[in-house]
Structures are given as structure tokens and as C-alpha cells.
């Protein structure tokens, strides 16, 4: 009986297409990825490097240009540290699920510390701190990639 109904329904489907029921994995909003956080952390690292390489000019007239450059680089470093934090938090709150945490029990702690590290790289001009952020984001990206398999 069920087989007959199924066969009949398939014939009906040929005449009139059925509607779509989304079992889609990423409704309602979207696409998740770890590349944005990785890119932001790398940007922070490069800008920190640039800041550390800058040397204050001895020439009085060049001081203003120097201050301007420092200010711009520091501003962009600040911005990308915030982007990094935001991207990490999006993965944390919107993508990762209790099942992922069961499999990776250290994930909460890793993300929490990485978000704090985003603040640390704002406060400091430290390659060590920037490298630490890169490592933490890489760790999150590895877990993210593993959950996508």
C-alpha cells in the first residue's frame, strides 16, 4: 500500500514539483569560517612588527610625520585586534555547539583566552603577544576545520 502511494506521489511530482523543506545546515544566517580571524591576527602581527621597526627621527620637522605614522599604524592594529575578537566570538556564540565542546573540552577556555589576547595586543606593542594571538587563532581554526569534516 505504502509503495503504491509512494509511486503515485512520484507521478504527481512529475506533473507538479513539490515545495522545498530546508534541512540546511546554516540557516538562518549563514556562512561561518575561521579565515577572517586568522587574517586579522596576522595583520596585528605585521603591524606590530612595523611599529617596532619605526625609529623616532632626530630632525624636529620629521617628528610630526613620525607621530602621524605611529598613530595610523596603531589605529589599524587596534581595529584589526577588534575584528579578530569579533570573528572569534561569532564562531563561539553562533557556530560551535555543545557537541563540539564535548569533543573538544578545552575549546571554551581557548576561545576565552584568545578573546582576552585580542585586548592584550591592543595594549602592548609586543611581537610575542601578537604571535601568541596568532597561535591561539590557529588552534581555533584547526578545531573549526575538524568540525566541518
Amino acid at each position: 500500500m505504502v509503495m503504491r502511494i509512494a509511486k503515485l506521489l512520484r507521478i504527481v511530482d512529475m506533473a507538479s514539483k513539490p515545495k522545498t523543506a530546508h534541512a540546511h545546515c546554516d540557516i538562518p544566517c549563514g556562512v561561518y569560517e575561521a579565515d577572517s580571524a586568522t587574517h586579522a591576527a596576522q595583520t596585528v602581527y605585521v603591524l606590530t612588527e612595523k611599529l617596532l621597526k619605526l625609529e623616532p627621527p632626530k630632525d624636529e620637522k620629521a617628528r610630526l610625520a613620525y607621530a602621524h605614522t605611529v598613530s595610523r599604524i596603531a589605529g589599524i592594529k587596534e581595529k584589526f585586534a577588534q575584528v579578530c575578537k569579533q570573528e572569534i566570538l561569532i564562531l563561539w556564540t553562533d557556530y560551535f555547539k555543545p557537541e563540539h565542546l564535548q569533543k573538544y573540552p578545552g575549546l571554551h577556555d581557548t576561545i576565552w583566552k584568545a578573546a582576552k589576547q585580542c585586548s592584550a595586543v591592543k595594549r602592548e606593542i609586543s611581537l610575542e603577544a601578537a604571535q601568541k594571538l596568532k597561535d591561539m587563532v590557529a588552534e581555533i581554526a584547526i578545531v573549526f576545520a575538524a568540525t566541518k569534516k
Binding site: L9, K17, P18, T20, A23, C25
Partner: peptide, 22 residues
Amino acid sequence: FARYEVKGRSMEPAFRQGERVL
């Protein structure tokens, strides 16, 4: 009654992509 085609994989293995339901 209504007929639907499943799109996406979140209902696997019970309902696979492309499967139809009444």
C-alpha cells in the same frame, strides 16, 4: 497534505538531500 523535497543535510540519516516527504 503537502509534498516537500528535502534540501540540506541536517536531517540525515533519516531524511537525505533530495528525498521527498508527504
